[in-house]
Design a protein around this nucleic acid. Sequence first.
DNA 1: GATGCATTGGAAAGCGCTTGCTGGGTATGC
DNA 2: GCATACCCAGCAAGCGCTTTCCAATGCATC
Lengths: 341, 341
Amino acid sequence: MVQSGGSVTLSDVAREAGVSVATASRALNGSSRTVRPDLSARVAAAARRLDYAPNAQAQAMARGATTMVGLIVHDIADPYFSAIAAGVSRAADDAGLLVMLSNTLGRPEQELRYLKALRAQRGRAAILVGSQRTDRDHSAAVSSEVAAFEHAGGRVVAISQARLPVDTIVIENAAGAGALARKLAEMGHSRFGVLAGPSDLLTARDRHRGFQRGAVDAGCAPPIAVHGAFTRDGGHSAMAQLLDSGCQIDCVFAVNDVMAVGAIAACRDRGLQLPKDLAIAGFDDIATLRDITPSLTTVRLPLTELGKQAMELVTAPPGTAPKRSRVKGTVVIRDSTPAHR
Amino acid sequence: MVQSGGSVTLSDVAREAGVSVATASRALNGSSRTVRPDLSARVAAAARRLDYAPNAQAQAMARGATTMVGLIVHDIADPYFSAIAAGVSRAADDAGLLVMLSNTLGRPEQELRYLKALRAQRGRAAILVGSQRTDRDHSAAVSSEVAAFEHAGGRVVAISQARLPVDTIVIENAAGAGALARKLAEMGHSRFGVLAGPSDLLTARDRHRGFQRGAVDAGCAPPIAVHGAFTRDGGHSAMAQLLDSGCQIDCVFAVNDVMAVGAIAACRDRGLQLPKDLAIAGFDDIATLRDITPSLTTVRLPLTELGKQAMELVTAPPGTAPKRSRVKGTVVIRDSTPAHR
DNA sequence: GATGCATTGGAAAGCGCTTGCTGGGTATGC
DNA sequence: GCATACCCAGCAAGCGCTTTCCAATGCATC
């Protein structure tokens, strides 16, 4: 059935079908040139009989184009990124593209490494997900590698990082956080705390600032901010710090859901009753966390949809100027922030 | 700086350095043949100056080997799979390999499609994660495609599906669930319910059966099982069904954590007090769910570690017979299952 | 000073595929 | 009946790289 010693090649198929490789190629790929139906059928039959799988590398070389897109995320185990990855993967499927997963684990040099690897693969596109840090050197290095990638004919799309001169899906972090703050103020909260994430992470910063502005606009005192890692543990320790500070606070905004969960745990460790003693809100609306108790007030982001949109930018004809599409968050009030007083 | 019109090629570098492509290739890759240090330096400098990135496709063709491994999962948005993916990704990095992500969304035909795509890419290996269904036709088709893949020189490793004649990481689902059942019985629970997942999903079935055996061994009545999807919603509706049945039960085992979360939500919908009115346990120990209330008793699986082990099997020299490594779960008792009576 | 060997650069042959071009065969027009 | 046009199979040239083989050079040895 299958040729011994390595893979079945197109010339095996051609021989089996009694035609030239050129004809076999045209028959299988249906090029602009037509092949007589009977030959075409013979080729198809031969391919099936030999269980032929075209060598994608060779095709890529000959055609000068691959079917690969790279997905570069901070941490695939983080539900935020994995939801986006699911959207990208889904959309890639529909477009007949393959997804290369790259997990930078937050290490900037990894991002560069992957970008370079992707260029080496002549990937059709790279999708960069995750807030960029406000690190000048790294930004410059990424910009330069991105330029090289684009020069080599690849598209680059950024999700949630607006610093690069490429097609970008901007998440309206500040606006979403602001809306949340106003809503919470309206519900009677006035003394806010913010678990603000790392100060050099743009997403965290935007959410923090947006919330702060919203709170102040609504006539509240500026929230008290505590910085910490953008993770569950970061939320936990930031919350602990906030509680230790002895500040009077009736509502805490964690700049993402995962941090909010850490914060909730920290509160419980101290014996606080939630949501009675303290209201807590997050951001993202992570699916896996929709059932926690108390159910978490948050700003919902259409994460899966994001991936889809990114794919659309990737497959769209390249424009002259970088496109920018905006994605809004929706405030979702749940039990973790009951009306105050 | 960069050549106009497409990418920089090795011959560009060679020309720039004033050597032949052969020498340039040898200088950059350090082959068995040595290149005089000064030439080597000239080549390296030229490559840097032109920002050369070797065409991986061309390398793959010439060398007859790629650096790609495929990771085939059911749903990357599911924290179980994304944790494994993180482990794989990490290990792939260390081994200098690239990961192709394939999300089958549970559709068997997608699994085949990906396997074939991976063969077309001449991927070095495929890692199949996730319990196989007990569907004969599909199993046969996968077996055949797996054979083709291996014939083409690729390695195949399965995680948590023991049906394929390939290197496999077996998760001791039955043993883990059995240990959990015994432990719960020891704690005074005796009337068990099981939210059993789809009946044709091996993992679900093994956990269900293991739990059942454990319970019976401990002298309890056979648990009452309700089947449902392997998801949060599946757990929710199975739990609702179980509650509606009016059976007297004091402890429910959901065959995975995500279902357990759905079950908890269903209980709350009915106004049950957890864990007072009912004990609930899960399986997997999903990191994102470690902070839910009540904290969930479960069987911890070293998910990230699994990915790493899979990678080790991939990079290990191929043995004659399929290797089988076993991974145990650890029973973790938390608040959701207090001692009974 | 001639011969042998080690060392190393370069020419060239592929890897498997696509595609422009060539040319034989057939259909059509006068 | 012959010329023109058209159709389509196949030859061959690449795509960018690795690697084998050959040739040239330098050095040691006799």
